[in-house]
Simulated scan of single mutants.
Amino acid sequence: MGDLGAQPAAAVYSVINFSHGALVIATMLVLAARQFRHSTGVQRLPAALLSPGSTFGVALCLAVIVMDIAHATGHHDLTHAIQAAYDPLSVLTFVFLCAGFAVQPAVRRAQNRARRRHTISFTAQLEPLWLRTTHARPGLSQADPLAAKSEDPEGHLHREIVEIRDAMIDPRVTFDTSRTERALLERAESHLVGNDTAVATTLTVPNVEERES
């Protein structure tokens, strides 16, 4: 900037580039803020890092634009005054944006592992009810047991839920469930379709010998 900043063509080129950069980063700031509002728990961490990073990035672009204009118009005092903020803004923008982008895949992997644990937990908790179901109404698990065992955790949980629901609505069999069992089934269904907003908690396996009215 010391060599080319006073040249109008260089100033215009820099202003255009940093104006485009400010627009892109401002859009990312809006998206990060929206993601933060619509997320919960650890899902907010990437947005919480990208939001200040984007804010610092927009401020950095605006600072460069002002310095370009001030230098090209001969207002060197203003250029030097704003230049003091250039290095801190550059560092803060780099640190927060890099941290936000780096955390996103880590959070996604952690969520996938947590979801898998919750799926396995729900599968285990539904197993006593499912075993009663298969005795009352043999389903696909008995017709093709090898295929059932080879399913992933979510596929196995889905099979359990479907067979339990089929037994509950089949008029040919008598299959009673308690309120606790139905609540557990609904929680498992919500988890499977992704409607459980909070971290699933482990429930005790319902006592199938005790019935609730």
Rank of each mutant, 00 (worst) to 15 (best):
E163S: 03
T174A: 15
S178Y: 06
P171V: 04
S178N: 06
E189D: 11
A148T: 08
V193K: 04
V162R: 14
D152F: 03
R187K: 12
V193N: 12
R182E: 14
T174R: 15
R182Y: 12
A183M: 08
N195F: 12
H158N: 10
V193R: 03
G155M: 03
P153V: 01
R159D: 08
R159T: 06
R159G: 07
E181Q: 05
K149C: 09
D196P: 00
V193C: 10
R179Q: 14
T174Q: 13
D152R: 05
E181V: 09
A167M: 08
L184M: 07
L184R: 00
L184K: 01
E151A: 10
E154S: 13
D170G: 03
A188N: 05
V193Y: 09
R159C: 10
S178G: 07
A148H: 12
R179M: 10
I161V: 02
K149V: 06
L185W: 02
T197S: 10
A183H: 12
R182L: 13
D166F: 10
L184Q: 04
H158G: 09
A198L: 11
E181W: 06
S190N: 11
M168R: 14
L192R: 08
V162K: 15
N195E: 15
L185I: 01
P153L: 04
D176G: 07
A188D: 01
D166W: 09
R165E: 08
A147G: 14
D176T: 10
T197Q: 15
E186S: 12
V193F: 11
E154A: 14
H191T: 06
R187I: 00
N195M: 13
R187P: 01
T180P: 01
P171C: 02
L192V: 03
E189W: 07
R165F: 05
R172S: 14
A148L: 06
S150L: 10
V162F: 14
A147C: 09
D152S: 06
D166V: 02
A148E: 08
A183E: 13
A198T: 11
M168P: 03
S178I: 05
